[in-house]
Amino acid sequence: VVEKVLDRRVVKGQVEYLLKWKGFSEEHNTWEPEKNLDCPELISEFMKK
């Protein structure tokens, strides 16, 4: 389960987000493609920053 979106990048035309996973430490954060995500409210919250 995604706890928080930390960053955004574009790699080869694909948007990816750096995710903080609930119950895991920062060392387990991962970059995931936008198309694989199902957390629009967290993405929206990140984009407001």
Rank of each mutant, 00 (worst) to 15 (best):
E16T: 04
W21A: 01
K35R: 13
K12W: 07
K4E: 08
L19A: 11
S25R: 08
H28I: 05
P33G: 11
H28T: 06
K35D: 12
E32V: 12
V2I: 14
S44Q: 14
E3I: 03
G13A: 04
K4P: 00
F24R: 11
K20Q: 10
E16M: 14
P33C: 13
M47K: 15
W21S: 01
Y17H: 00
V2H: 03
K4H: 06
S44T: 14
L42I: 10
K49I: 12
F46Q: 02
L6H: 06
E16Y: 15
E16P: 00
L42Y: 07
L19K: 03
Y17P: 00
V11H: 15
V5H: 00
V15Y: 05
T30M: 03
T30G: 06
L6K: 11
K20N: 05
V2G: 08
P40I: 08
E27A: 13
E41P: 06
S44V: 12
E34D: 04
G23P: 02
K20Y: 02
D38P: 05
F46A: 03
L19R: 01
L37E: 01
K20D: 01
E16W: 02
N36D: 14
N36G: 11
G23I: 02
K12R: 13
E34P: 03
V10Q: 15
R9W: 00
V10K: 09
C39H: 07
N36E: 14
L42V: 08
W31T: 00
E41G: 13
F24G: 11
G23S: 08
V5W: 00
C39M: 07
E41C: 10
R9D: 01
L18I: 00
F24C: 05
E45D: 05
E41N: 11
C39Q: 07
G13M: 04
K49V: 08
N29T: 12
K48I: 06
M47L: 12
V11Y: 05
F24Y: 12
V5T: 02
D38L: 09
D38K: 09
L19D: 02
L6E: 09
W21P: 02
V1L: 04
E27G: 12
D7N: 10
N29M: 08
Y17E: 01
L37H: 04
K22F: 13
F46E: 03
K49Y: 07
F24E: 08
C39S: 09
T30N: 05
R8C: 09
E34V: 08
E27C: 10
Y17M: 03
V5Q: 00
R8E: 10
K12H: 09
S44P: 05
F46H: 10
K49M: 13
D38F: 06
M47N: 12
S25Q: 05
K35W: 06
E16I: 03
D7A: 15
V2N: 00
V15K: 04
F46G: 03
K22P: 01
K35V: 12
L6V: 11
L42D: 04
L42C: 05
E3V: 04
N29Y: 07
R9Y: 00
K49P: 15
E34F: 04
V2A: 10
K49H: 14
E26S: 14
K48H: 08
V10W: 02
E45Y: 12
D7Q: 13
V5G: 00
K49Q: 06
L6S: 03
E32W: 12
G13W: 03
D38E: 14
G23K: 05
E34L: 06
R8V: 05
S25I: 02
P33H: 11
P33K: 07
H28N: 02
P33F: 07
S25T: 10
E16R: 03
E27L: 11
I43M: 07
Y17A: 00
Y17N: 01
F46N: 01
M47H: 15
E3Q: 06
L6M: 11
D7G: 09
V15H: 10
N36P: 02
E27Y: 09
K20F: 01
E27W: 09
G13T: 07
K12E: 14
S44L: 09
V11P: 00
V1W: 07
G13K: 04
E32R: 12
N36V: 13
E41D: 15
E34K: 03
K48V: 09
V2C: 13
K22E: 12
W31C: 00
Q14H: 11
D38N: 10
W31N: 01
W31Y: 01
R8K: 12
L6A: 09
F46W: 13
G13V: 01
K22I: 08
K49L: 10
V15T: 14
W31L: 01
S44H: 13
D38V: 07
K35S: 15
S25P: 10
E45Q: 05
V2R: 02
E27V: 13
L19C: 15
E26C: 14
Y17G: 00
W21M: 05
F24T: 11
I43T: 07
I43A: 05
H28Y: 09
E45F: 09
S44D: 14
E26G: 10
N29Q: 08
E41L: 13
N29E: 06
K22W: 11
V11I: 11
P33V: 12
S44W: 09
D38H: 11
V11M: 10
L18M: 06
G23D: 15
V5D: 00
V15G: 02
F24S: 12
D7C: 04
S25M: 08
F24P: 08
D7H: 04
L37W: 02
V10L: 14
S25N: 13
K12C: 05
V11C: 11
E34C: 06
K35Q: 12
K20H: 07
E41F: 12
L6G: 02
E27T: 15
E45K: 10
G23A: 07
I43K: 02
S44F: 08
K35G: 13
E41Q: 14
S25H: 13
P40S: 15
M47D: 14
S44A: 14
M47T: 15
L37G: 05
F24M: 15
S25E: 13
Q14F: 06
N29L: 09
F24A: 10
V1C: 04
E3D: 11
E41M: 10
S25D: 13
C39P: 02
E34T: 04
N29C: 10
R8M: 11
L42W: 01
K4R: 07
K49A: 06
L18T: 00
E26Q: 08
K22N: 10
E16H: 15
K22A: 12
V2P: 12
W21C: 02
E16Q: 15
N36Y: 03
V10H: 05
P40Q: 11
P40F: 13
L18V: 00
H28F: 08
V1M: 06
K48Q: 15
L18Y: 08
P40R: 13
V11S: 10
V2F: 07
D7M: 04
L6I: 11
D7V: 00
E32D: 03
H28V: 06
V10E: 13
Y17I: 02
R8W: 06
F24K: 15
W31S: 01
R8G: 03
N36Q: 14
K12Y: 06
